[in-house]
């Protein structure tokens, strides 16, 4: 069996990042902490995708597809949020309108 070292190292790295993320949320939550949590999630997801899903050895086309999908997710999230950053929801006016 070849190439077992890389996934095991990736697994260890994953656990370290997970530990760091949980430590931060336990002792220093708040906006900065949350940003750190999300960054950790990105690192963990990348570790799984690169080492367990073979994105490292995949051909370029698959990488383009993976990136494109992430971009589409960003479009959906970004343009939807364009609405919500300029609008307040859940106000009492809305509630009384349906009551």
């Amino acid at each position: 069996m070849k190439d077992v070292k890389a996934p095991i190292l990736a697994w260890l790295a994953y656990l370290v990042v997970l530990g760091a993320s949980i430590t931060v949320t336990r002792w220093a939550p708040g906006t900065l902490g949350h940003v750190f949590n999300l960054l950790c999630a990105l690192v963990m997801a990348s570790l799984v995708m690169v080492f367990f899903m073979g994105l490292r050895s995949a051909d370029n086309l698959l990488r383009v597809f993976a990136l494109a999908t992430l971009m589409w997710l960003a479009i959906m999230l970004g343009l939807t949020m364009m609405d919500y950053v300029y609008r307040e929801i859940g106000s009492s006016a809305m509630l009384s309108a349906i009551a």
């Binding site: 069996m1 095991i8 697994w11 367990f52």
Partner: peptide, 18 residues
């Protein structure tokens, strides 16, 4: 994640005909 590791290892094992 540990289960994912074992899944990745099983892929390598099948590649080595074990």
């Amino acid at each position: 994640v540990t289960s994912s590791l074992f899944m990745a290892l099983s892929e390598r094992a099948v590649g080595a005909d074990r």
